[in-house]
């Protein structure tokens, strides 16, 4: 054990000829809340998606709790791990998506229960009570039997967060979770994330909500053209940006 929860070393990712991640290094400790900011196309979402192997990557390594994610190198050849093994590793992280991605044919509770039953092997009644506990935590106890189509965007996103958290991940990944929401629904979701941060959940957030990143993060990473442009504590980053790129980016982003 290195003591680090997450350790990314020299991460490279290409789509064909286009290199979107050009050597990213990042470590995070248990309980850290790191916001990743940057303009679109800078590679922040891709980096997040590499951590749970929704994207393949061609170079570098990612470790969670010391365990190498996705690939193994034997005798100099790098090989993708077996699907089953990758599925197990994916369950070490939880992810909330921009588009919520709730399963539309299942109620809120069933959405949360699916992973508990299929991945964790819980009995249905056991899974049901865990699901209810987490739906209650995100303020949706009364809506647990509603279907996604019967919920507002903010409620759907909260169910999606409950679905991820209920799996008891070591690390939560949030991918622009408020970008698809109407402005008046953003706060209810951010509040849920703040509560989780306060409880000590380790989180990596890709976000465009600068005020939120400022308030909630222990560290901020600014991604620029596939590399980490600047990183540090939010106060320094937002108030005294060291690079011109970050200063420019902050000028164009709303800080409210």
């Amino acid at each position: 054990m290195t003591g680090n929860l997450l350790e990314i070393r020299d991460l490279h990712k290409r789509y064909g000829d286009v290199e979107v991640l050009k050597g990213v290094d990042c470590t995070m400790a248990q309980g850290d809340v790191i916001s990743i900011i940057g303009s679109s196309g800078s590679g922040k979402t891709t980096m997040l998606r590499c951590i749970n192997m929704l994207e393949e990557f061609q170079g570098g390594s990612i470790r969670i709790d010391g365990e190498e994610i996705g690939y193994e190198t034997t005798g100099g050849t790098r090989r993708r791990k077996k699907e089953k093994e990758i599925a197990r590793q994916r369950a070490m992280t939880g992810m909330a998506f921009q588009q919520f991605n709730l399963f539309p044919h299942m109620s809120a509770a069933e959405n949360v229960m699916l992973g508990l039953v299929k991945v964790k092997g819980m009995r249905r009644d056991e899974a049901r009570s865990v699901a209810e506990k987490w739906l209650d935590r995100v303020g949706l106890a009364e809506r647990r039997d509603r279907f996604p189509g019967q919920l507002s965007g903010g409620q759907q996103q909260r169910v999606a967060i409950a679905r991820a958290i209920a799996m008891n991940p070591k690390l939560m990944l949030f991918d622009e979770v408020t970008s698809a929401l109407d402005p008046e629904l953003v706060n209810e979701v951010l509040q849920v994330i703040k509560d989780l941060a306060r409880d000590g959940m380790s989180m990596l957030l890709v976000t465009h909500e600068m005020r939120f990143a400022y308030e909630v993060s222990s560290r901020v990473i600014f991604m620029n053209q596939g590399r980490i442009g600047e990183e540090g504590n939010p106060r320094e980053m937002f108030l005294k940006p060291q690079t011109e790129r970050l200063a420019e980016f902050l000028k164009t982003s709303t800080f409210n």
Partner: peptide
């Protein structure tokens, strides 16, 4: 939608679990 399969992957479901619990029921509808 592809995002639903990704959501399944993200919670640790295997491809066959995703096919049986998510893809097939939605396809049928």
């Amino acid at each position: 939608p592809n995002g639903l399969k990704e959501a399944g992957l993200a919670i640790g479901l295997t491809q066959s679990q995703i096919r049986n619990s998510i893809v097939m029921p939605l396809m049928l509808r």
